[in-house]
């Protein structure tokens, strides 16, 4: 009887000691392929340029803009307070600290949204949440925020509101002179139209 107990004692000590000698394992949460495919199919990862502009203007503290273009392109022009993580260095350890910060929305952007989308997929695979892509990228940014197109006269009042928001944003970002904006809002004619969301969001 006693011999068995001695064996058991040793066994327990060995098991406990074993915990110390286990090699380091990378137990970071990785998204599995099915979940990844599913989230790629969802369009919810896209954020419009209008929303990004709003967040910048309102100094939304949860905003974290990430420019995934090369360093040269970044230094030529970048959005206000954006940080630069070139796409090919996204997986290196230096930059992982910028993702997965609780409460922050990491929004990737590039010239169009292809590179930014790739960055999103990579980050999603690594298990990060709260990550987004700015739809249309900087090209869309130029066309909607910096030089918004004036809607024609038959457009809905929402489109005019959006346009005047964009004009204001354009002024904020470029410091251009205030133009006379008297025709900004159409008179209150209740146009019973169905809300054309794609147009109102100014898709590029």
């Amino acid at each position: 009887m006693n011999k068995n107990y001695i064996y058991l004692t040793v066994l327990m000590l060995v098991l406990a000691a074993g915990l110390f000698v286990l090699p380091e394992r990378d137990n970071s949460k990785q998204t599995n392929p099915e979940d990844l495919m599913w989230s790629i199919v969802q369009p919810t990862r896209f954020i419009s340029t209008d929303v990004v502009a709003k967040m910048i203007i309102e100094r939304d503290p949860t905003l974290e803009l990430i420019d995934v273009r090369s360093e040269d392109e970044y230094s030529e022009f970048s959005l206000e307070k954006a940080i630069n993580i070139p796409l090919d260095s996204l997986t290196s350890e230096n930059y992982q600290n910028y993702l997965g910060i609780k409460g922050l929305k990491a929004i990737f952007y590039s010239n169009d949204d292809i590179k930014a989308d790739q960055a999103w997929v990579i980050a999603k695979r690594l298990g990060f949440d709260n990550i987004y892509v700015m739809k249309g990228g900087l090209n869309c940014w130029m066309k909607t925020i910096i030089e918004p197109t004036q809607p024609n006269e038959t457009a809905s009042s929402e489109e005019f509101e959006l346009y005047s928001f964009r004009k204001g944003a354009s002024i904020y970002f470029t410091g251009a002179n205030m133009e006379n904006d008297s025709e900004g809002t159409k008179a209150v004619i209740n146009v019973q139209r169905k809300k054309k969301t794609s147009v109102v969001e100014g898709g590029c």
């Binding site: 000590l13 406990a16 915990l19």
Partner: peptide, 17 residues
Amino acid sequence: AEVFTMIMVVVGLAAFW
């Protein structure tokens, strides 16, 4: 956690004997 467990194991085994 590992260190604490080890201490507990040693103390526990000693207590058993």
